[in-house]
Design a protein around this nucleic acid. Structure first.
Length: 217
DNA sequence: TCATTAACACGGG
DNA sequence: CCCGTGTTAATGA
């Protein structure tokens, strides 16, 4: 593909996703300094302890933001979709802190990376940017609280249902393309439990199960 | 009581 | 055969 045409496409995507919230001057600033990055599904973008040099704007695809312990066990915190950015990145950038989380692409994803030096000047210069950052913060904290509630107060069967609802909302065809093992990994439990719970959900008629597939009814 | 771990059988690709 | 799945038995919180 011709490179100039490719850039044009990305700019279209940028306007499509952010055009309604950012003023034109800010959009062209993003075009000028942003670095477009295409990432294949299943790639780890962020590691614990890594310093963050730029912040991502999601143009297409989905990222999952996860917590990880020393043994490498992990837990899903929330998803990032197109039109969103990562609040953890923002707090890391502002405090020049190491990352507390990991980010993995859930599908093929296109990002625009914004150098963190721009953060401060844009916050002063563009009202829409300021709003975007604040709203992003609010949204992420809301998601995070929901996850905390879910872990603290819900049993695994209810957590699984919530998880399936969230996943099918994000998925294009409404089908969750995951193995029981992968679901277990994200909910931080064992495959036996997921298999058993999915089986009972199927018997209740809430879902249908195929190999590598779960569909909500 | 319910989760985890290990183990095994079944079956589709 | 390999992998995902369904199930069970033993053990522990």
């Amino acid at each position: 593909m011709h490179f100039g045409l490719y850039i044009e496409l990305m700019i279209d995507k940028l306007k499509e996703n952010y055009g309604s919230i950012f003023e034109a001057a800010l959009i062209s600033e993003i075009e000028r300094v942003g670095i477009i990055k295409e990432v294949a599904s299943g790639t780890q973008l962020m590691h614990i302890g890594q310093y963050i040099k730029s912040m991502p704007l999601v143009l297409s695809g989905t990222l999952k933001i996860m917590r990880e312990d020393q043994e490498g066990d992990s837990l899903l915190l929330y998803y990032l979709e197109r039109g969103e950015t990562c609040a953890m990145t923002l707090s890391c950038c502002l405090g020049n802190q190491k990352s507390e989380i990991i980010a993995v692409t859930e599908s093929d994803t296109i990002l625009i990376m914004i150098p963190i030096e721009k953060m401060e000047s844009w916050t002063a210069q563009f009202k829409s940017w300021r709003n975007f950052v604040f709203e992003s913060y609010n949204h992420r904290i809301k998601d995070l609280l929901e996850t905390v509630d879910s872990i603290a107060f819900l049993k695994m069967d209810e957590r699984l249902i919530k998880y399936l609802e969230e996943k099918s909302r994000i998925s294009e065809d409404g089908i969750i393309h995951k193995t029981h093992q992968e679901i277990a990994y994200e909910l931080h439990t064992s495959r036996v439990v997921i298999s058993r719970l999915l089986k009972t959900l199927e018997k209740k008629g809430a879902i249908s199960i195929e190999r590598n597939k779960v569909k909500l009814l």
